Simulated assay, not measured.
Amino acid sequence: MLEGLHYQNAYVCDELEAGIDLFRGRGLEKDPVIIPVDQTVVTPGGPKRQKGRICFIWIGDLQYELIENEIDEVGLYANCLSNGGPLRFHHICFRVPDWADFRSRVDAQEFPVAMERGLSAEAEGGLKFLYLDAREVFGHYIEYTWMPEPMWQHIRAM
């Protein structure tokens, strides 16, 4: 399952500021906003907590997401093994135009859902995402997102 607009490559790093520094002089034009994240996601094993800090760096039409993990009850980021450098490639992300249509086909495709957010009533009209575990085929996870257009424009402006 590969569909939608590929707009992001994501990396796990031990120190977010050190990761950001690696982009200075390589296309980073302004300091990114660091966003604290503390959320509960749905997994095959039930609800799990994810806590950390992230930032988004846009270079052209590609967004680089840097993730500093603090609490990873899912184990999704902790299993991203060191490559000897400060950034470890983790996943790519696609934006899909119709979440209900996309989600209706997820269970019929080959990759298992690793985690998901956006199933509850309070998430209606807000950001929805899920990660598929595509490591056996592609060597990484694939994230899919849906968000309202104003939220997308806000993220593009960051």
Rank of each mutant, 00 (worst) to 15 (best):
Q50S: 09
M158F: 14
M151C: 03
L76H: 06
I35W: 02
M1L: 03
I71E: 15
Y64V: 11
Y131I: 07
E68N: 12
E70G: 05
L2V: 13
M158V: 10
G19F: 06
H140S: 10
R24H: 08
P148N: 12
G27L: 02
M158D: 08
L66D: 01
A10Q: 01
K51H: 07
T145G: 12
Q109R: 04
M115K: 11
E122Y: 06
V42D: 15
F56M: 09
I35G: 09
C80E: 11
A134K: 00
D72W: 08
Q109P: 04
F56W: 09
I71Q: 14
V33M: 02
L5V: 11
G118S: 00
H140C: 02
T43M: 09
S82Y: 02
L87T: 00
M115N: 05
K30V: 13
E29W: 02
R117W: 00
N83W: 08
R135M: 01
G45M: 11
R26P: 03
D98H: 13
D101G: 05
A157M: 08
N9L: 14
L2S: 09
P36N: 04
E15C: 14
G139V: 00
E17W: 10
C55A: 05
V37G: 10
D101Y: 13
E15Y: 13
E110Q: 11
I92M: 08
T40P: 07
A108P: 03
V41Q: 06
L28E: 01
R53T: 02
L87P: 10
H91P: 08
V42Q: 13
E136S: 14
D21N: 14
W99I: 06
E65I: 11
Y11C: 03
T145S: 14
E110G: 09
E65S: 03
V12E: 07
Q39E: 15
W152G: 00
H90Q: 04
K51P: 01
G85H: 13
P97W: 07
N83C: 11
I34H: 00
L76G: 15
V106Q: 11
G19D: 06
F111R: 05
R95I: 15
G126F: 05
W146H: 10
D61M: 09
D98T: 08
D61P: 13
P112R: 05
H90C: 00
W146K: 11
L119I: 12
D107M: 10
L2W: 02
I67P: 12
A10D: 03
R156Y: 12
A114H: 01
M115W: 10
I54N: 13
G45I: 01
I71W: 11
I142V: 12
T43P: 14
R103S: 04
S120T: 15
R156S: 09
E65F: 01
L130Y: 00
L66E: 01
M151A: 08
A78R: 14
Y64G: 02
E136D: 15
F129R: 07
E73M: 06
I54D: 11
R135G: 02
P97T: 00
T43G: 02
A134R: 10
G118N: 05
P44S: 06
G118I: 03
L132V: 08
Q63T: 02
E73H: 04
Y64K: 04
Y144A: 03
F102M: 07
N9G: 00
A123Y: 04
L66V: 09
A123L: 10
T43W: 07
R49S: 06
K48S: 09
E116G: 05
